[in-house]
Design a protein around this nucleic acid. Structure first.
Lengths: 231, 231, 231, 231
DNA sequence: AATGAATGAGATTTCATTCAT
DNA sequence: GATGAATGAAATCTCATTCAT
């Protein structure tokens, strides 16, 4: 029984080792140059062993993406509670993102891998897709759209705003920022510089979403006192 | 010397042939699947010959990007005349883009190749780069920044707006849209759908750039009568 | 010792399980695609365990072949009693084959595995082999040769007929037919079509074996009344 | 021009070199163990070069098979003239085969490779196939069936003989013999022993084809005087 | 006795690049 | 200047077999 458990644990650990090695390599040299050989070498395993845990390269990338998205969602969830206003949710989303972004590279990986797996494919395609291959990414999208709709309903955002376009725009922005960050070397990745840039960008876009004439102070994501109440 | 000249001219023509074939292939099947083999076959040259004109695949891609940017700038220039207001310039920029986008595929190529060459690298890195590898892309950026600065000076845009961030945001948006378009099949590429999406996005961002309280009608890029005069 | 015996019995059972799983897989997907992995999965054992019972894949295949031949012989034996004429024995052989072929897949396995193990190797090599690797196959051969010799002695077959060649020819024919059958999908395997083909072929060959001028009716394998008495 | 021709010739020669190396390896160690690596090593070429000449392993095997069948047909053709009786044609076919078989290994390769490409698939499947992938093999089959039909028409063969079955039987026999030969080591391959076996087998089968009561001497393939005239 | 885990060796295939002519 | 031919290095994936527990 103890053995059973230990086995299970070790197996999970190995899986994690492999995924982590892959992630590190992705951060270090880009998804494009990621090879099974490389992962094997870094994980100090034989190539064949990789195939014991994952049925192919594509699967590894998918898992990385999914796992990162899952982790992100987990970190983010506590910030999203029921009964709060849309703007408040938006702020929480942003803060969750900042927290997450400051703590790990998950989000960088999500975007980089995803862009590799589906090159050039936007997060929300203009052409409807039947089945998303990525439930967690899907969840992120849905969540964001819900928040935007709520903001519209609360009279904060322009009622004519196309929510789906808005979702796409926000996520594209995140993706760009992240890609930008991923190109930076080493520690500088998580610098204030990048977060500043992202905050500014996020702010500009939200301002663009806002209903004309509204007091922008209630949309101020930098101020901790912003409470989402329309003025 | 006549001979010398003819030689020179032929050489240039050859170069162009190669680049054009590469472009067509990129449009037809994506940068990812572009191979020296393919270019050689299409150009009806031997692979070895390609190396007489370009020192490698990377260089070809770079040149393609540059050349497309140059062409884009040429088309765009007439819309940018001195003595007009910033907003008007912005509208011209947008119209130039729409025109360009409806008329040729240069812009698709610019973004797709660039994204392939520097995957995930934003157009304007947050980290200053010593030497831009792409003078023409640089020019596009500079132009846009100039316009934004002008809009700020004219009181249309938020005086606190970070012009460089704004430039990056605009270009990221364009890039995303183009990638999205490139995923669409055939003629649908240039459909109203995409242009609509782009227009909406552009509009939202500009609205976000605007000074608080300003009348948004003067920023309406869909209205041909918008003249950039602040209300 | 009871324990000893049980152990022994269990070991034999395990061996059988493994062999049977392998057989089923062979019938389902062909020898070519048989893998140790597959056997282990089907037998619900670990691959390593297979090696406790058999020293390698080749050995498993050999045993399968042998065991199938043994089973075939067992089914066939009752049809072969002493005191009957050679032709009658031949008819019994044929009927035993038909019965066997209609009732189980052993014979398919014998030939397919054998052909895989020794691709292109005839059942009876022209070159004498010191030690037959397959005693049971050897028995089948011997039996058949005995029958043929008897037919010769009884004046039914051409006295100049080379009995060994004749044996080889008959078995090759069976092998071909079986291979043909194995290519057919599912139930159609045992259709009248195949048995017809085999009967015709068997008949032609026997006719070829016959002494010149003999009345072929006594060799008619389709007629149940043929009794092997020369007219 | 001379250069053009020389190039062409050299290219053909390379192709031949590759095919010949493959053939030698097949004869030496069986099709099963043939690998692109092996061919490359034997041909003293890089693996990549093989792909310049053949688009894959399967293609190489197919070409080998086709080419060998073509060579066989060429050697065989002179023996098949119009206006001869069916039996005479049959004798010629046999002699062509013997000649060919005594002279080269082509025929061994045909059968071994074919058996590998289409494992267990008889030359003439009981299930009709839409398109033969092998025009030359097809020709061999057609030729043989034509001869058999002619023999039936001439009253030599049993009018009830199923010509297609007969063709299958003959070819199976050849295939078996050849496989047998291929297993023999070195020079013994072409020994009288094997040819004797084949002759005997061929004779028995033809006797089996014969109409009942016919004088078998006219079917004697060993006698050079047999002239195919029914007695 | 049993097995989960690991692996070495090898398969096919691709492609940017070089070189002799 | 042009090119046909060649290739090294790398990619992904498979499988019979072994070993520590």
């Amino acid at each position: 029984m103890g053995i059973q458990e230990r086995r299970e644990r070790e197996k999970t650990e190995r899986r994690m080792t492999i995924l982590n090695c892959a992630k590190e390599l992705i951060l270090a040299q880009g998804v494009e140059r990621l090879s099974m050989d490389g992962i094997a070498r870094k994980a100090e395993l034989s190539k064949a062993t990789l195939y014991l845990y994952f049925s192919g390269k594509e699967v590894i990338l998918n898992e990385i993406c999914e796992e990162s998205a899952r982790i992100f969602l987990e970190h983010f969830k506590p910030f999203l509670e029921t009964g709060i206003t849309g703007v408040k949710a938006l702020l929480h989303f942003w803060r969750g993102y900042v927290k997450q972004f400051g703590n790990s590279d998950e989000i960088i990986i999500i975007f980089r891998v995803r862009n590799f797996l589906y090159p050039g494919q936007p997060f929300v395609s203009l052409q409807k897709q039947k089945h998303s291959k990525s439930p967690f990414l899907e969840t992120i999208l849905t969540t964001m759209k819900t928040i935007i709709d709520q903001c519209k309903a609360e009279g904060i955002f322009d009622p004519n705003l196309d929510s789906e376009m808005a979702t796409r725009l926000l996520l594209s922005m995140f993706s760009s920022s992240v890609d930008n960050a991923a190109r930076m070397s080493g520690e500088s990745k998580k610098t204030k510089l990048l977060l500043d840039e992202m905050r500014k960008t996020f702010q500009v876009i939200i301002n663009g979403f806002a209903r004309e004439g509204i007091d922008r102070s209630c949309l101020d994501i930098s101020s901790p006192s912003a409470d989402g109440r329309a003025g």
